Simulated scan of single mutants.
Amino acid sequence: MNWLLLLEQILNGFQLGLLLFLLAAGLTLVFGIMDMVNLAHGSFYMMGAYFCATFTGWTGSFLLGAVLTLPAVFLLGIIVEVIALRTLYSRDHLDQVMATFGLILFFNEATRLIWGPIGLVIPLPDFLNDTVEIIPGAPYPAFRLAIILVGFLVAGLLYFIVARTKLGMLIRAGASNREMIGALGVNIRLLFTLVFGLGAALAGLAGLMAGPILSVEIGMGESILILTLVVIVIGGIGSIKGAFIAAILIGLIDTVGRSFLPEILDLVLPAQTAATAAPAISSMMIYLLMALVLAIRPQGLFPPKGVGR
């Protein structure tokens, strides 16, 4: 086994997992507190990438573009919540699914009108375009390493906010009994708006970090939204802890599995059969894990009593 390749794929798995966590954390907060199924969450991921590409082009700095993107996506999330989603909280989930699917189409067409059908490129500064030697003889892209560091920092900050601050206390209380905190005088409408904006900003952060690696294109949020929903189901709907662990687990399974499954199958299958079966099995492993978790623990690995638990 190539141990340097294994180390690189493990780091790639953490990078993918932390991007998924940023998306899943916002989505699970919205669902856990507001009981809102938001299929348009991937659109905020896409808008984060497009905003970052635009702001980077205007300012000539990726870092400044990223700083401007976060409040822009936060504000966009608030606008969408106030205008389009606020009236859906009392409706059933099918209505929410249909409405937010309509938002996906709206964002895709609006993006096409504003930026055109051709994808954008987000240029990185030289120090992020370089490589870092993690151990001697094992260079790793600096930007991917930065994604891992930022992901862990945001995860720690999010845990601190949810577990240690007054806003976090209201979030946990709202997830447990929204009627009660409303009766105690808490402005539940404002709380919902802030939580939705926070979730949109987290998705936008994932988008601006994925943009330089992937292509910034229309519809880029749909495919990753499917993985995000799988993360939430495995981790437990409404659980920040569950979202984090499930996202890292899925990231590792996806990247390490795709790299080493062909070699493993070569040991027991003919080479041609192994080459054909490996990509299919690699794609299936995440969903097989979800099916296994649902069969054993239908509420997910970490079903919360309140958000963050």
Score class of each variant (00 low, 15 high):
A24W: 01
T28W: 03
M36T: 03
L208H: 12
S215P: 01
G168A: 08
G236F: 01
N12T: 12
L5C: 06
E133L: 11
L128R: 05
A275P: 00
R112K: 13
F302R: 01
D92E: 11
I33P: 10
L94T: 10
E133N: 13
L4E: 08
S90V: 14
I104F: 04
T59V: 10
L288W: 09
S90D: 15
G17A: 06
L39F: 14
I253H: 04
T193V: 08
Q9H: 12
E222N: 10
M1S: 13
V162D: 06
F196A: 07
I181N: 04
L94A: 06
I253F: 04
G300R: 01
I296H: 04
L5H: 10
L16V: 10
Q272L: 06
M47N: 01
E179G: 08
L128S: 02
L249C: 03
G204A: 11
T111R: 02
T131W: 09
L20G: 04
L120T: 05
A274Y: 14
T131M: 08
M1I: 13
S215I: 08
A203Q: 00
R189L: 13
V121C: 03
L70D: 00
G151D: 00
L76Y: 11
I232T: 02
L120R: 15
I118W: 13
W58N: 06
L145A: 13
I135L: 14
L16M: 10
F106L: 14
L205K: 05
D254A: 14
G242A: 02
I281E: 06
S239N: 02
A291L: 13
F143R: 03
I118R: 14
G219K: 11
A138C: 15
G235S: 06
G26S: 07
T228S: 07
I118L: 12
I224T: 01
L113M: 15
T87G: 10
L22C: 01
G238E: 02
V186L: 07
A201Y: 06
I264G: 09
K241Q: 06
I118S: 09
I245M: 15
I10D: 03
L94Q: 04
I104H: 04
G306R: 14
M98S: 08
F260K: 06
L170V: 13
P212N: 05
V195H: 07
V154A: 15
P123Y: 12
V150Q: 03
A146M: 10
L157D: 02
L252I: 07
F31K: 06
F14Q: 01
L252Q: 01
I237K: 00
L128F: 13
G185K: 05
G236S: 06
L149Q: 10
L190G: 08
N38Q: 07
F44T: 06
D35H: 11
G199V: 01
G182P: 12
L27S: 07
A25H: 00
R172S: 05
G211C: 08
M284L: 13
T111K: 09
F31P: 07
L5E: 10
